[in-house]
Amino acid sequence: MTAVPTSARPAPPSAARIGLSRVGLELRLFFRERQQVVFSFAYPPVMLVIFASVLGADERPGGIPFAQYFLAGIAATGIMLTSFQAVGTAIAGERESGQLERLQLLGTPPVAYFAGKAGQVLVTAAAQLALLLPVARYGYDVPLPADLAHWATFLWVAALGALAGTVLGIAASALPGSATATTTAISALAIVLQFFSGVFFGFLELPGWMQQAAALFPLKWLTQGMRSAFLPEEAGAFEVAGGWEHGRTALVLAAWVIIGVMVCMRTFRWRRGEG
């Protein structure tokens, strides 16, 4: 067997290189899907307009105008939809149409495929937020993050939240059943998570068991982190823990990303059925 003179074939390209080229591919595919683009970019501002119009006169604990409180929630929700929901749905569809089978046959490292999704999500989430913030600022007088430190918080929370959502989406795409069934399950989960995580209502108003369930998922931490970037410092006193819990937020989101990727690399299925 050692005598086989296998032609000196170089090693296949690294996972990093394939991952990078997949980011470009995923972005191109994303922007060619017109409905998806419109939904992703229009949903957060539209929701802001609707809720601010109906509940604009309300105030949240600490005398914070509703729109200001809600901006944090809707920014977090937008990130969750472009990461968790869009990724989970897309993967289920790609698996059903046999695109993942092609990738498997090419020996694509799963982590390179995940990286392509994550890169696409980071770019689209950034574009989505860049559209939402001006609407809030100029339409509803919501102050943007107060200083550089708050902007930094906003950025790391958004990035980590988008990555955690992507991982959650990859995990959810492994749910058994057809792509249609998976899409339905993911949409339902996204809606439930939004309510549990205090996107629409003040998190404190939720029953304790709901708060605890939400704390297991990234959206609650993403929303809380967003509040810490958009709300004044004193508002932290109205959080469950009596503060912004930046350390714990970073820890939970990072754990979701790291442990999630490791789990997904093992459970990821390229095909329907066994594998």
Binding site: P12, P13, I18, S21, G98, Q99, R102, L106, G107
Partner: peptide, 30 residues
């Protein structure tokens, strides 16, 4: 990478052109 497969399933994304598909997957091989 030493094995080529023509499977019954579909190729890359449906919204890609033929050339884009080939150009993209070229980057997967040694």
């Amino acid at each position: 990478d030493r094995i080529g497969v023509v499977a019954q399933g579909e190729g890359g994304g449906a919204a890609l052109s033929v050339r884009e598909t080939l150009d993209h997957f070229a980057g997967y091989h040694a």
